[in-house]
Simulated scan of single mutants.
Amino acid sequence: MDAIDDLNRWMMTEGRVSNDPTKVVSHFCTTLIDAGIPLWRANIGQRFANPLLIAWGIVWTPESTETYDVTHARMLTDGYIGSAFEYILENQRPLHKSLRDLDPETDHVSYLELAQAGGTDYYATLLTYGDQSQHGCTFATQSPDGFSAKHLQMIEAAKPGLSAALEPVTMRKSSKSLLRTYLGDGPSEAVWSGTIQRGERTTLEAVVMFSDLRGFTALSDCSEESVVFDALEGYFDVVVQSVEEMGGDVLKFMGDGILSIFPIRSAADRAHQCQQATRAAKGVLSGLATLNQRRAETGKPPLDIGIGINVGQVSYGNIGSPGRLDFTVLGKAVNVASRIEGLTKAIGQRVLATRSVAETTPELFTACGSHEVRGLAESVDLFHLSDPT
């Protein structure tokens, strides 16, 4: 067992501080092979503390090492139900299973796929971390003799080192994923690095897009909560997907309002980001049309929105009390985007933009006059999309 002792030492020292899960798993598996374990495939699954993703993991083979994510929805499918991961978590014990003579009617599809690829034997076991969270790992072989009792003992003996190396990686990934889920990519990185503390702010130029669901108050007043949440989730999906596809960050959900920004990192980037925000707005309208088709098929009323786009200087940072913070973005550019969105219904256009945005793609916009905007001394020239489709 000297090789396993050496492996544990490496995992608890170099592996633990590497912050490279692919390197850790690759070293773990190749060392097991060198120690005499006929390893063909390994799947190291790590559970997330995240409302969107429930797990991530690494699949190792001698040819490649790949990472994957698992959503909560996946846990309700046949991909998880009846799998080895479900078994070990539910029964709190390892699983050793031959991949020979499987029954297609009763054996899980993952076993059948491994057997079809040449697998002969399979072992699944738990990793337990310091916070008592549990994670799974599975191993498969193509050896005609399968895994021996000694092989399984060696795998179990090597688990403390693997846990020591992967636990800090998993904790960091969980924390970062939570920040990204609630703050978006750019702000989450700033908060994670500690550059935005309470009272601090970052000032930058950005394109601001504010979208709002029309008729939301009436929908809330006359509908059950499940109906309201269903409408919000569909609307949020459409906006977030469109913004992120165009490289923007969704910063805030405010009831049915969504605040997004497209940061401008240089003068040369200004026109491009205005165009990206415009494309995102068009993507929202297209996505909403598709959503409304699906809603109509189930007898649900259509949803409508208003979008305001502006560009200018904004400041974002953490505000609040010593024990409770909120991440927010402030500035005149934000206020104008919000208030011109409020004019969309009165003007009769779903997307309105200021001149500084519209002039970057004049072929996409049509002037709709100068309008008074609450809080501003001077009226603002507004433009609507010439072809919203």
Rank of each mutant, 00 (worst) to 15 (best):
D2N: 14
D2G: 15
D2S: 15
M12S: 09
M12W: 08
G15R: 04
T22P: 14
V24F: 06
V24L: 10
H27F: 12
F28I: 07
T31C: 08
W40Y: 14
R47F: 07
F48Y: 09
N50M: 06
L52G: 12
L52H: 13
A55W: 05
A55N: 02
W56C: 05
G57P: 05
I58R: 06
E63H: 12
T67S: 09
D69A: 11
A73D: 11
R74V: 14
D78S: 13
Y80H: 11
G82R: 04
S83F: 03
F85H: 10
L89K: 07
L89W: 07
Q92E: 14
P94I: 04
K97F: 05
R100M: 12
E105W: 09
D107Q: 01
D107W: 02
L112Y: 07
Q116W: 10
G119Y: 02
D121F: 06
T128G: 02
G136L: 00
C137V: 10
F139G: 01
A140S: 02
S143T: 02
P144A: 00
G146M: 07
F147L: 03
H151K: 00
I155H: 02
I155K: 00
E156Q: 11
E156I: 05
A158Y: 01
K159P: 00
K159L: 11
P160V: 03
S163I: 09
M171C: 14
S174Q: 11
S177C: 07
L178G: 05
T181D: 09
L183M: 11
D185T: 15
A190K: 14
V191L: 12
V191N: 06
S193T: 15
T195C: 15
T195S: 15
R198F: 11
R201H: 15
T202N: 15
L204G: 07
L204C: 13
E205T: 14
M209T: 01
R214H: 13
L219Q: 03
S220V: 09
D221W: 13
E224G: 12
E225Y: 15
E225H: 15
S226I: 11
D230P: 03
G234R: 02
G234W: 01
V239I: 11
V240P: 06
Q241C: 09
S242H: 00
S242I: 01
E244L: 13
E245G: 09
E245A: 10
G247Q: 08
G248P: 05
V250L: 08
L251M: 08
D256Y: 02
L259S: 03
F262W: 04
F262V: 00
P263R: 07
P263M: 08
P263A: 08
A271K: 08
Q273A: 06
A281T: 05
S286Y: 10
R294N: 11
R295F: 00
R295P: 01
A296L: 10
G299E: 01
K300Q: 14
P302Y: 06
I309H: 05
G312R: 04
R324D: 09
L325S: 11
D326T: 09
T328E: 00
T328F: 02
T328Q: 06
K332D: 12
L343I: 08
T344K: 03
K345D: 07
A346N: 10
I347G: 01
G348P: 01
Q349A: 13
L352F: 02
E359T: 03
T361F: 12
P362T: 01
P362C: 05
E363V: 11
L364I: 08
T366K: 10
L376H: 06
E378A: 10
E378L: 09
V380F: 06
D381T: 09
H384G: 04
D387H: 13
P388N: 09
